[in-house]
């Protein structure tokens, strides 16, 4: 969406000559106008920003160190319940760590995972999709068959097996999830590139002597970004969910990490005795995923009217 090469209508009217920066500002304003219409999207954005702030300022916000064990307050209930201890707003877990502090630090994990997974999957998918869409022919056929194979596996299962190969842990879980998500980006990029390839502005750039690399990345790619941005948002929320699931199954971040899925795995055996150790981490996952999905809906409506839901 940024730096669209010579949008029609703008250069045609000699009166309105806008610089690139001005066009970009207008597009941003236009985007914000549409995004703002969607109440859910704005709520999602606010929650997401709060989450980012919590992650960034975790050392200032968290009342305790997330790994510090208070031996005199094991499984203390939240403060409003009978037996709650002052200083532990949301109670403590089985080894006496403060739930609130762990949840705040957990936001760092989720955001980090989301950003890394989406970045790897997006970059990989764009390069592969551009190659397939731009060159077509056997390159396209081979690449797309390989993508079909990856998509034939249920994503969580393939991620699990990849982690089994690479060894459990946060880094490997992120790589595995990124590999599993990557075909979606490749397919989207390919489809968009095939649509754009035959347009006049591409032919014009080719006539002007642009090489294949410039054509792919500078001429075509910026015009294919809308669906990719929407998919990136959706993948961000799926990455948070799937990495929590891997953590829950013991294949993601390892204890004592305060990753929300890992916290849930540790809390499982106390499920009927201490509701708070199970409820809060899951609630944190749900709220963050929901916020990102709400934002994604708004982004889709604002960026890509063709994809509009109703």
């Amino acid at each position: 969406m940024t730096a669209a090469p010579a949008p029609q209508g703008v250069t045609a009217e000699p009166v309105v000559r806008l610089s690139d920066a001005a066009i970009r500002r207008r597009m941003l304003a236009d985007f914000w106008f549409h995004f703002r219409q969607n109440r859910g999207a704005v709520i999602g954005l606010v929650v997401f920003v709060l989450m980012v702030l919590a992650a960034v300022f975790a050392p200032l916000l968290a009342p305790h160190d997330p790994t510090q064990q208070f031996r005199d307050a094991l499984l203390a209930p939240p403060i409003w319940q009978e037996g709650g201890k002052p200083g532990f707003l949301l109670g403590t877990d089985a080894v006496g760590r403060d739930m609130l502090s762990r949840l705040i630090y957990g936001a760092q994990y989720s955001l980090f995972i989301g950003v890394v997974v989406v970045a790897i999957a997006l970059i990989g998918g764009i390069i592969i999709g551009l190659l397939a869409g731009f060159f077509g022919g056997w390159v396209d056929a081979v690449i797309m068959r390989v993508m079909d194979v990856v998509l034939a596996f249920p994503s969580l299962l393939l991620a699990l097996v990849l982690v089994a190969v690479l060894g459990p842990g946060l880094t490997n879980a992120m790589i595995a999830i990124a590999i599993v998500y990557q075909p979606h980006f490749a397919r989207l990029t390919r489809a968009a590139v095939m649509g754009e390839k035959a347009r006049e502005y591409v032919t014009a750039a080719k006539m002007a002597g642009a090489g294949p690399l410039r054509l792919m990345f500078k001429t075509i790619l910026p015009n294919c970004l809308a669906p990719l941005i929407v998919q990136a948002t959706l993948s961000f929320s799926s990455a948070v969910l799937d990495s929590a699931a891997l953590g829950f199954l013991g294949m993601g971040a390892q204890p004592p990490a305060s990753e929300w899925g890992t916290m849930l795995a540790e809390a499982r055996e106390f499920i009927l005795r201490a509701w708070w150790v199970v409820t809060f981490p899951g609630l944190a996952i749900l709220i963050s995923v929901l916020a990102i999905n709400l934002m994604g809906d708004g982004l889709r409506d604002a960026l890509d009217p063709k994809l509009k839901r109703s």
């Binding site: 849930l264 199970v278 929901l290």
Partner: peptide, 15 residues
């Protein structure tokens, strides 16, 4: 539906 779509089902099962 949006909440259901965003649900971590392993947590939902525990609840």
């Amino acid at each position: 539906a949006l909440v259901g779509f965003s649900m971590p089902i392993f947590w939902w099962g525990l609840l």
